[in-house]
């Protein structure tokens, strides 16, 4: 069992938990993730290690509430325990040789990119960070990211905060202005990573994306997470989750992510119904 020692609402739909997991905390590197299972009968959910504290022996996870398991996780409180937690999984992101880096994140990707920005900053690289969300209420971690970035840009789709528009708009301007940018890291919704990769291809700037295919064991045993990269079938969980954005078949990824959409919806609906019942029953 893995005890939750901190629980915060980052925004309406994004929550943060800090969990006791000393072994994982001592070996985690940026870009890696965990798989958790809330309870008996629960599914295995992959989530990025957004931060770790070796001394305290904890890892921090920031997650967006989208379906059954994340709705349920959001109901966990400080002191509650998660049944299973496995990690760190996947390969650490390989920034090899890059000096002037732009990190682009959207949605919950803002939390996922934090450890990478921090690591690059600590290594003395030039890091520009661009974060974006649909509206102001969905933004978070601005201060945290600012503290570890050389420059910071914020966008909202509706203009309710920062600049109105998409992260890719800002990225395009930066690429136009600064020809020394040698790496772009993009983490967020698949469509955002696709747009960013298409854009940077025109500028011939290496781009790393962090893919989130459906996973099951996340140890390389099932192939549920397979993605096509450079025409080859690779496993997201062990070969990734970071890949060369210019090589990824995003269309296939999007289709594969929809594989169980009906079942997932059904499961979330049933859970919400039951949950209302259990609330009414005073549990």
């Amino acid at each position: 069992m893995f005890k939750i020692i901190k629980r915060e609402d980052v925004s309406d739909t994004v929550k943060l938990i800090e969990v006791e997991a000393p072994l994982i905390a001592s070996s985690a590197k940026s870009g890696q993730f965990v798989v958790l299972r809330l309870k008996e009968g629960g599914e295995r959910v992959p989530l990025t290690i957004a931060d770790k504290d070796k001394k305290k022996g904890t890892v921090t996870i920031v997650f967006q509430v989208v379906g059954k398991s994340t709705i349920e996780l959001a109901s966990f409180k400080v002191g509650d325990s998660i049944k299973d937690l496995l990690g760190p999984l996947g390969k650490a992101t390989d920034f090899a040789g890059a000096k002037n880096i732009v990190c682009v994140a959207g949605g919950v990707g803002i939390a996922e990119i934090y450890p990478e920005v921090k690591e690059l900053h600590e290594e003395g690289k030039i890091v520009t960070t661009i974060i974006g969300a649909r509206n102001k209420a969905l933004l978070f971690f601005e201060e945290e990211l600012k503290a570890v970035s050389d420059a910071m840009h914020v966008t909202t789709d509706d203009g309710s905060y920062g600049r109105k528009g998409f992260v890719s708009d800002v990225l395009k301007e930066l690429l136009e202005k600064d020809k020394t940018i040698d790496l772009v890291v993009a983490v967020g919704p698949v469509i955002m990573m696709k747009v960013v990769s298409d854009l940077t291809k025109n500028y011939n700037v290496r781009t790393i994306v962090s893919l989130n295919p459906i996973m099951l064991d996340a140890t390389g045993m099932c192939g549920a997470c397979r993605v096509t990269v450079g025409g080859k079938t690779l496993f997201g969980c062990v070969d990734g989750p970071s890949f060369d954005g210019h090589q990824v078949d995003f269309g296939e990824l999007i289709k594969r992510l929809n594989q169980f959409k009906d079942e997932e919806k059904n499961s979330a609906e049933i859970y919400k119904l039951k949950c209302r019942e259990c609330r009414e029953n005073g549990h």
Partner: peptide, 22 residues
């Protein structure tokens, strides 16, 4: 087969939606 059988056996997808893995 590993994915298929793991969903069914380990994750007990045959009991979905009582269990969470489809």
């Amino acid at each position: 087969a590993n994915e298929y059988l793991t969903r069914i056996n380990l994750m007990q997808a045959y009991k979905f939606p009582e269990t969470d893995t489809p």
